[in-house]
Design a protein around this nucleic acid. Structure first.
Lengths: 349, 349
DNA sequence: CTGAAAGCGCTTACAG
DNA sequence: CTGAAAGCGCTTACAG
């Protein structure tokens, strides 16, 4: 049986292919009864509606928006914050009739999704600007929105106020009397040496800004913090090992670049019998769902992930409507004090 | 400036459009030097490669696979297990050069992604068969794979052995001496009355199978469990309220349909000062990442979510290669005993 | 309200 | 190794 197309139906009903097309795509262009007749014939023939690929070719619109995640979706989906972001974006896009396609940036057998997948625009989440995916998207001249990555020229950005949040977190510890503070950082291969601004430059904005925020507070207080870092983006074996080393002679407080990193410190501390917050205070970042559930509940810096996702989606949607996306100030962050921080213990003070 | 197409480059280089197409899509069809020359010209003209939509129309392949999630992606992404599944699927597909597009099943303004998005096949996760999305996909005659939903005829399925896992969990409690056991269920609007098999029929396989597994064990032991249910799919206000009512006269043990539901019971028990596991034993389902982190660590039934995702992806990939997908036995589940279960307290025994 | 014309940008056979 | 022919299935103007 040959494939059923608009033409098949047109012949069946005795109208032109155009009219059948209108029946599906522009209902106001024909009488209700003719439309019903056409739709009935289509259903009888097992026609599922206009072919999306053909429609995309001629209309130039696919109804699909891409999302490039840092590394692969596989990595990103181990991170609560990234998941929450994808969730908010997918939800907002769905409300506007768009679907979200997850793009991995590493090419397999020369298959680069950012180059080969049909889409109307894309959101870059925490990407470095020299990614293959970014290059492809730009060459295709697709509208893009950057979130928490380095700036891509011409592309509007959504960002959160990492600096202020980090500053508030560090200030909180300093106000509690802490002066022996370790900073747990990612994407910086440092073990106990504060990275130079130069060393920080290639690190994605998020990491660098959090570190700078912490250090503004410690600088102001005349404190030189310890640095415990990993070149990776997440909690990895390098970081685990360095945290372990750090805990052999523990500081009185720790500021971590994410809640997951903070929880790693908390777990290792537990194993060593180091009381939190009695002997060690810990502050995370992100206010991920986990942070509330662990005990002691984690002091952290909240960001509104839903708002971030909605902002990114609505910016891209504006671009897709050929409007210019409004510039946006960084979304606010807020210190949430829970039970993992306390005054420095008298013994150590 | 007119859009750059294969034709533009062909004229520039002085070859036919076909040869330019081959340079991009079939490198073995022309000499290396000619190919380089063509690619260089393309780059100079700012050509980003063959248009995906046009390519999809003529080749009949898009490189995109759809995923229909129960409700919207928004709902699904609040669930650790669903997220893990999406992660594994996206990863496996990426390895094969495919990208994953998230499809919401509710149509907005008549925009139904399952009908309008160009794709090569789809995975249905925990869907009821009468979903609009399923209908659309079937009418389009796209290859589909069903995961943990009701069977869709002709579509291969991936499933886990919910029944055995649930049975083992219930048996574990019974062996500990429990006889006053509450079953926390979703998609069943029951408050203390065991649902009939008939009432269970429309519930997705997962829920029904877990309930049946538990009840096989309680039946064998001659125990009539309490039923605490919600018509919803997740932990919702109805369920929270019914759990609260249940805890006014608590059973000695609880079996929950998911870890999230188990944690809800645990939290409410904490608030009421009911000791876990001293006074109340709790078993979850799924072995989500959370279950290990809470305290007391949750006894639960483990399923291998990565394996489930990989199985679904490789089945669909086989279908896309026009191979028939091999039938698969349900993936095994395994009881993981941690700290939230213990012997029934003597007071109550 | 309906239709004839033109074409979206590409690839699949096939012939040379 | 290269190219002329045919066409994928649809929609966008436009004319009636």
């Amino acid at each position: 049986m040959a494939r059923v197309t608009l033409q098949t139906i047109a012949e069946q009903v005795g109208v032109s292919r155009m009219t059948v097309s209108n029946a599906f795509s522009r209902p106001d262009q024909l009488s209700a009864e003719l439309r019903t007749k056409i739709l009935d014939a289509a259903e009888a023939l097992g026609y599922a509606g206009p072919d999306p690929a053909a429609r995309a070719l001629v209309s130039g619109r696919t109804g699909v928006v891409g999302m490039v995640l840092t590394n692969s979706p596989r990595d990103a989906f181990t991170d609560d914050v990234a998941v929450g972001f994808v969730r908010a974006v997918a939800g907002s896009l769905a409300d506007a009739g768009y679907s979200l396609v997850l793009l991995h940036s590493s090419s397999h057998d020369g298959v680069d999704p950012a180059r080969n997948v049909a889409m109307d625009g894309a959101i870059m989440y925490s990407c470095t600007p020299r990614t293959q995916a970014v290059t492809a998207l730009r060459e295709r001249r697709l509208p893009i929105v950057t979130v928490e990555g380095a700036a891509i020229d011409g592309a509007p950005r959504v960002d959160i106020d990492n600096h202020s949040g980090a500053y508030a977190a560090a200030k909180h510890l300093i106000d509690l009397g802490h002066s022996d503070i370790a900073l747990i950082v990612a994407m910086v291969d440092a073990d106990d040496e504060p990275p130079s601004d130069e060393a920080l430059a290639p690190a994605p904005v998020t990491t660098a800004e959090r570190l700078r925020g912490w250090m503004r507070a410690t600088d102001e207080a005349g404190i030189v913090p310890r640095i415990v870092g990993t070149p990776g983006r997440f909690v990895d074996d390098v970081l685990r090992a360095r945290i372990s080393t750090m805990l052999e002679d523990p500081p009185t407080a720790v500021l971590a670049f994410s809640d997951l990193a903070a929880l790693e410190v908390m777990e290792q501390a537990k194993q060593r019998g180091i009381d939190v917050p009695g002997r060690l205070s810990i502050v995370g970042f992100d206010d991920s769902p986990l942070s509330r559930r662990v005990s002691p509940a984690l002091t952290t810096v909240r960001q509104d992930i839903d708002a971030k996702g909605e902002a990114a989606a609505s910016m891209l949607l504006a671009l897709l409507r050929d409007e210019s996306a409004p510039a946006m100030p960084p979304l606010p962050t807020e210190l949430v004090v829970r039970d993992s921080t306390g005054p420095v213990s008298p013994m150590r003070a």
